[in-house]
Design a protein around this nucleic acid. Structure first.
Length: 567
RNA sequence: UGGGGCGUCGUUAAGUGGUAUGACACAGGUCUUUGGAACCUGGUUCGGAGGUUCGAAUCCUCCCGCCCCAGCCA
């Protein structure tokens, strides 16, 4: 994944690695991305993916594994394994043959558990879940030792074996590490290593009725894989002493856990719980709704893997919890799409424009550039005729000073076509709304250049009424109307901050004919409007559907925002 | 009144005792057959108070604020 370009931004994790390489602690590094297959990946996961795979790509001979952390069969499913694999591939990363599962290590983990029991560092506890909770103490008071804490290694070994053999009912016993019930860190108060759970595992089936907890499985899995730097998010800082304790107790290769702040983005939510609510409560159409921050949602919305990787490169890696401005993401997206998306003309809200001095029945094929940023993308031809559609917003009968599009008596350019001048406005007698604009055109300006060098203030996009194709366009906007919907006021819920205008469907837009057959997933810039992508689910030949990925920067919109009167 | 973290422009991130820097956002401008893109210009912001020092965002002390932890979830 190495790309040429500016050196990657440095951060505290790189400093640690550089130091480890310099001192010879390691000659190379090995990282891993360890998702639990219990849901879909989102933009927050992308940061961890880019960090882990990116680091491995940047350091010589270094590798990053993909490991599914599948220690809880009640929540995990094969479907998620597949979707996660698909999404990481789409993002552009490769783990070659290093696809692992924590469940691959169940036998080894069990063997190690017996080892700790033998060393007197773990014991079988018969307390119920409630009793354990009750005896754990609180944040300010120490816990009480389990009455089974001092069983002999031999008795513990016997009990552990019988736990594995299925002699005891679910939840009746646990294997716990023998550490310190008075520790200030709750994770060290004899944490649970195994629970009895008769649940079918998506990979090991019914082979086990005891399953390791995260704490018991994670560090040991890292060790088995030869991970050198185990990166995780801040909430695991409290677990690091335990991570270290297990590895030390076992006396095996000891990766270093390093915690960093996970990515948060403004105007959206990223917790699995909240995302699930949006889906289950029907706020969005599903996990791949184009408004969702899931990788599937972003993909369907038209975000590119390149823009996501660029975001992850730019946001930095630190321990400070921060919320990244969505505007940065959109900026990076535009930067990418500007160079790659083909241009086309599409009129979202059509207003008829008739050229009174243009012959009826005549059609011209005018040449248009496919991408001004990339001449190699060539040109295409666009049909032009007497009756056209322009954007409703591009005409104002009584324009404010800052508006320099079409208005009565005013001349503008129709892109790649002619200069036209408004000579008449036909209005709906009932509403007074303009329903047809009549213009003259200057034949000498064919193609859009005036031989006499006269200037016009505006260039408008258009489509030929008789040639344009109908299309459905879905205008997407921020899912929430406030930067941090999770920061809900007293009595409020994050859903109270949903943006009611996050989706507006325009069933019948007019697009230039060259767009009629655009393939699903293709990115295109509707000139002067925004970037769009052909929807991968609902778009059909003959009935195209476009999703707005992001608008273009819009100077006029800003002016209107500043002076609400100018409309 | 337990333990673990974090505080640098609006937002992010650099800075590791010697002129506070970049990106996004914002504001102004140049250019333009996209009010796009590109380019130029702008703002003084180190949580607070003391202290050490010729000199502190960096070192010390105290204070304040925010986040995480009491799953047999990860």
């Amino acid at each position: 994944m190495t790309t040429s370009g500016p050196a990657p931004a440095t951060h505290f994790i790189r400093e640690i690695i550089d130091e480890d390489l310099r001192t010879g602690k390691h000659a190379r590094i090995q990282t891993r991305f360890p998702p639990e297959p219990n849901g879909y990946l989102h933009i927050g996961h992308a940061k961890a993916i880019c960090l882990n795979f990116g680091l491995a790509a940047d350091y010589p001979n270094s590798l990053c594994n993909l490991r599914f952390d599948d220690t809880n069969p009640t929540k995990e499913e094969e479907e998620f394994v597949q979707s996660i694999i698909e999404d990481i591939r789409w993002l552009g990363f490769d783990w070659e043959d290093r696809l692992y599962y924590a469940s691959d290590y169940f036998e080894k983990l069990y063997e190690w558990a017996e080892d700790l029991v033998g060393k007197g560092k773990a014991y079988v506890c018969d307390l119920s879940a409630d009793e354990i909770r009750e005896s754990r103490g609180t944040l300010t008071e120490p816990g009480r030792e389990s009455p089974h804490r001092n069983r002999s290694p031999a008795e513990n070994l016997d009990l552990l074996r019988r736990m594995r053999a299925g002699e005891f009912p679910d939840g009746s016993r646990t294997l716990r590490a023998k550490i310190d019930m008075a520790h200030g860190n709750m994770n060290m108060r004899d944490p649970i290593m195994y629970r009895i759970l008769r649940a079918r595992h998506h990979r090991t089936g019914d082979a086990w009725c005891i399953y390791p907890t995260y704490d018991w499985a994670h560090g040991q899995s890292d060790s088995i894989e030869g991970i050198t730097h185990s990166l995780c998010s801040l909430e695991f800082e409290d677990h690091r002493p335990l991570y270290d304790w297990f590895l030390d107790a076992l006396g095996v290769s000891h990766p270093r856990q390093i915690e960093f702040a996970k990515l948060r983005l403004s105007y959206t939510v990223l917790s699995k719980r909240r995302l699930r609510r949006l889906v289950e409560e029907g706020v969005v159409s599903g996990w791949d709704d184009p408004r969702m921050p899931t990788l599937r949602g972003l993909r369907r919305r038209g975000f590119t893997p390149e823009s996501i990787r660029a975001l992850c490169d730019r946001v930095g890696v630190a321990k400070k919890e921060s919320v990244i401005d969505l505007a940065l993401f959109e900026h990076l997206l535009r930067e990418d799409l500007n160079k790659r998306a083909r241009r086309a003309m599409a009129v979202l809200r059509p207003l008829k424009l008739v050229l009174v001095d243009y012959p009826e029945g005549k059609t011209e094929e005018l040449s248009a550039v496919n991408n001004p940023e990339d001449p190699s993308m060539g040109t295409r031809t666009v049909p032009f005729s007497r009756e056209l559609f322009i954007e409703k917003d591009d005409f104002l009968e009584h324009p404010p000073k800052e508006f320099y599009r079409l208005a009565p008596g005013r001349e503008v350019r129709l892109r790649y076509a002619y200069f036209v001048k408004c000579v008449e406005v036909v209005k709906d007698p009932a509403t007074g709304e303009p329903i047809e604009i009549r213009c003259t055109h200057d034949p000498a300006t064919r193609g859009g250049d005036a031989p006499d060098k006269r200037k016009v203030k505006a260039t408008l996009h258009w489509v030929s009424a008789g040639h344009a194709v109908a299309a459905e366009v879905r205008l997407y906007d921020h899912l929430f109307s406030v930067p941090d919907p999770t920061d809900a006021r007293e009595g409020k819920d994050f859903k109270d901050y949903l943006n009611p205008n996050s989706l507006a469907v325009i069933p019948s837009c007019r697009i230039e004919p060259s767009l009629a057959a655009a393939a699903p997933g293709v990115h295109v810039q509707f000139e002067r409007v925004g970037y769009f992508v052909v929807d991968t689910v609902d778009s059909k030949p003959g009935k195209p559907v476009f999703n707005r990925t992001v608008t273009l920067r819009d100077e006029w919109a800003r002016i209107q925002k500043r002076h609400p009167s100018s409309r």
